[in-house]
Design a protein around this nucleic acid. Structure first.
Lengths: 119, 119
DNA sequence: GACATTTATCGCATATCTACGATATACAAT
DNA sequence: ATTGTATATCGTAGATATGCGATAAATGTC
C-alpha cells in the first residue's frame, strides 16, 4: 500500500507542491539565501557556512536544481550555482495567485448553514 | 545517523519551511481549495471529492490545522473546517518577502570572479 | 437503550527524505 | 604521470511521510 496518488490531482497543484517541497527544508532555504547574500557560487563555501556535510549539501543543491530554482554548471573541479530569479519569482507568484484565486471564489462559511446553528 | 538538523537554521526559515511542507503535497492544496471553492466544512464531503480514504483526508486536515492554515471545530459527529485566510496570506507574504529580501541583497554572480573567466 | 452517522485515532506497510562516510570523477598544477 | 582540489554519486541507516483498513469516540435518532 501507500501508493503514490500525487498524479491524481490538478497538474497546477503538483507544480506548486513540488516547488513548496523544495522549500520544505530550512537547509535548502538557507542554501538559496547564501547563494544570494554572499554572492557565492561554490559548493565548498556553502558547506563551510552550513552545518552539513559536503555530500548532503550537494544533494540539496541537486534537488534545488532539479525543480529549477537554481542553475548549476560544473567547470571541472569548480562549480557555479546561481539563483534562477525567474523561477523563484514564479514560485512566489504561483502561490499568491493560488491563494488570491481561492479567496475570490470563497464565500462565508459556518454562518448560514447547518454549522451556523450555534446554540 | 540522519539526525534532525532543522533546528540549526534560522527560526524564520523553519517557519517558512513548515508552511511549505504543508503545501508540499497536492492533496493538501486540493483540500484547501475545496474548503474555499465549495464552501464546504465537512470532512465527509471532502472525502467524496478527493481520491483518498477518509482516514487519509483526516490526517491531512490534522496537518493543515497544526500549522494553522485551517481551523477546525468538532461538534459531535459533524466537523467544521474553515480556511484561516490570515495565516494563508501570511504564508504568501513571508515567501514573497523572503525572495524580495534575497533579491535586494544579491549582486551579479559569475561575471567578474573566477567563474567569469570563460574561454 | 440500540442503532446509525461522522470523524479521529491506531496499527501497520510501503515509500520517500535526510544525513553521512566512502568513493568516483574531473580537472589543474607540478 | 602524480598529486591535489572540488564536486558528484553510491551505499546505507534511521527518521518521516503517505495511505489504508479497522476501530474508537461522540453525538443524534429511533
Amino acid at each position: 500500500m501507500a501508493q503514490n496518488k500525487k498524479d491524481q490531482f490538478e497538474k497546477n497543484f503538483l507544480d506548486i507542491a513540488e516547488l513548496c517541497k523544495a522549500f520544505s527544508h530550512p537547509a535548502r532555504i538557507a542554501i538559496v539565501k547564501v547563494l544570494a547574500q554572499k554572492n557565492i557560487c561554490i559548493c565548498g563555501e556553502i558547506v563551510e557556512i552550513l552545518p552539513l556535510a559536503q555530500s548532503t549539501v550537494s544533494q540539496h543543491l541537486k534537488e534545488l536544481k532539479k525543480i529549477g530554482l537554481i542553475t548549476g554548471e560544473i567547470e571541472g573541479p569548480k562549480s557555479c550555482y546561481c539563483i534562477n530569479w525567474k523561477r523563484l519569482n514564479e514560485f512566489s507568484g504561483l502561490l499568491k495567485n493560488l491563494i488570491d484565486t481561492m479567496h475570490s471564489m470563497s464565500q462565508s462559511c459556518c454562518q448560514g448553514g447547518i454549522h451556523g446553528k450555534k446554540k
